[in-house]
């Protein structure tokens, strides 16, 4: 009996020693006790795939592919994403000059959306107020970041701002992959609101609101 208890204790210790406890950090991939149908021949995004020569599961669309998105409603008209329309390019149709004003009607909803997206995608560099003092600048990691209250940038057209957000400018890269067309116009609208918050004077306020100012 003594030997049995001894062997038993040693076995238990070995198992605990080898297997460890729950939640231990391990570099080994999880054990599949019963593989069953856990892994099937299934195409998943962002995984390697031997079927295609380039080894990617998510293939890039062929040049000239038209996306099947729903058209956007702009001023009561349906605009598809492939059309050469101001809302898609920020430029006057058929020309290269930028449109002056936001292609979408400015609503509270658009501004709220712009606020949210600006804080996610632009604030790391430009800061929440757009002064170019985001965290990357503050810790001194990034040398050049534009101050969006700069007079030159305030004077740019909305179309050009849209173009900068879409395709980038100088050392800033574009955000077309992250932000949809609607979101990009929303960000531009919010950026204008930020600039106005610095440039506006008491005269811009409605008379009732101005009366409340001290």
């Amino acid at each position: 009996m003594r030997y049995f208890i001894l062997i038993f204790a040693v076995l238990v210790l070995i198992v605990i020693g080898v297997a460890g406890k729950r939640g231990d950090i391990t570099r080994n991939s999880p054990i599949q006790i019963f593989p069953d149908m856990k892994r099937q021949l299934k195409l998943r995004p962002q995984t390697p795939n031997g079927f295609f020569a380039n080894g990617l599961s998510s293939q890039l669309p062929q040049p000239g592919t038209i996306s099947q998105e729903k058209p956007m409603l702009v001023g009561g008209k349906e605009v598809y994403s492939f059309e050469d329309a101001p809302v898609n390019t920020g430029r006057v149709t058929g020309a290269t000059n930028f449109i002056e004003l936001n292609a979408l009607p400015i609503t509270e909803k658009l501004l709220a959306r712009g606020h949210r997206q600006f804080n996610i995608y632009c604030a790391p560099c430009h800061g929440q107020t757009g002064e170019g003092t985001g965290i990357t600048k503050k810790i001194g990691a990034m040398a050049i970041v534009a101050n969006l209250h700069d007079k030159r940038i305030v004077q740019l057209t909305d179309g050009e701002l849209f173009n900068t957000v879409s395709h980038g400018k100088g050392v800033m890269q574009g955000y077309a992959a992250q932000l949809t067309v609607g979101d990009r116009w929303a960000v531009v609208a919010y950026l204008r609101a930020l600039q106005l918050s610095r440039l506006g004077t008491a005269d811009d306020l409605a008379p009732e609101t101005r009366a409340k100012l001290k």
Partner: peptide, 9 residues
């Protein structure tokens, strides 16, 4: 809880 938690490749 044992064989997945803690996996850190």
């Amino acid at each position: 809880k044992y064989f997945r938690v803690g996996y850190q490749p």
